[in-house]
């Protein structure tokens, strides 16, 4: 198991956002997470990489638990266990004061995972892969949203992560720019990168992912293959959700 999540719970004050979430992800699997706004998708995803602290439950990456029954391991240990997880954000979160190259090489060079020369070579390769070889020295402010997100993906790939988490990677983009980002994600899928993608892109969920998780009110209501989810939704709230999405897409 690449990631094993066991009965995790999280509340913000009285608001119980995660009420016992359990699932596993195999190496190479691509999971789409869908569900209504406020159902806890982002909170769940952020918990997997230590951006949210859960109150209870366990999470293991590559067989190593960094939180066990709500008790976290020491910071150094957590840092080590999570060093092979990457994340891509809705708003890219590029460092605005650094060039594309610096954005990508800063962390691995600072952490001495590679020399500057190695990092720069890797940076070239990855930028070419996402189709931005010419943007090496560009500043983020000069890039379009789609280009920023592709740089963010390339940046997350610098340390050869075992798993990549995406939180609505195309939601902040103009519709005509989502395609270029989805294209890169498809390419990663073809290379069997393990990915968990919170998304409103039903096309991606349906045709690219291996499994679809439907979250509702802090629990996983459905966890099935996309064909099942889309062709025969077993759950009334899922049908309603898909119906709403469908209507919205048709309206656009």
């Amino acid at each position: 198991m690449m990631i094993q999540v066991n009965n995790i719970k999280k509340a913000f004050g009285d608001n119980r956002v995660l009420r016992g979430v359990t699932f596993g992800v195999e190496r190479g699997e691509i999971i789409s997470v869908i569900g209504p706004s406020g159902s806890g998708k982002s909170t769940m995803l952020r918990s997997l990489i230590g951006l949210e602290r859960i109150d209870d439950g366990s999470i293991a990456v590559n067989g190593e638990k960094f939180v066990d029954n709500g008790v976290y391991v020491k910071e150094r240990e957590m840092h080590r266990i999570l060093s092979h997880s990457g994340m891509v954000f809705q708003h890219f979160n590029l460092f605005p004061h650094m060039s594309v190259k610096k954005n990508m090489t800063c962390a691995p060079v600072t952490n001495r995972l590679m020399t500057r020369a190695e990092a720069e070579e890797k940076c070239h390769t990855l930028l070419a892969k996402v189709g931005l070889a010419d943007k090496l020295d560009a500043m983020p402010s000069s890039l379009s949203g789609g280009q920023k997100q592709r740089v963010a993906i390339a940046r997350a790939l610098m340390t050869n992560p075992d798993i990549l988490l995406f939180d609505e990677p195309t939601s902040a983009l103009d519709p005509e720019l989502t395609g270029e980002v989805l294209e890169v994600m498809k390419q990663l899928a073809a290379e069997h990168m393990t990915m968990i993608v919170v998304t409103h892109e039903m096309g991606f969920a349906r045709y690219i992912s291996d499994r679809v998780i439907f979250m509702d009110q802090g629990v996983i209501a459905v966890d099935e293959k996309p064909e099942e989810v889309f062709a025969h939704p077993s759950n009334a709230r899922l049908s309603a959700f898909l119906g709403a999405v469908h209507t919205k897409e048709a309206a656009n």
């Binding site: 999570l82 990457g86 954000f89 600072t110």
Partner: peptide, 11 residues
């Protein structure tokens, strides 16, 4: 988001 990006990059 800057702190979050730094954290997930392992800084």
């Amino acid at each position: 988001g800057q702190y979050e990006a730094a954290q997930v990059l392992g800084l």
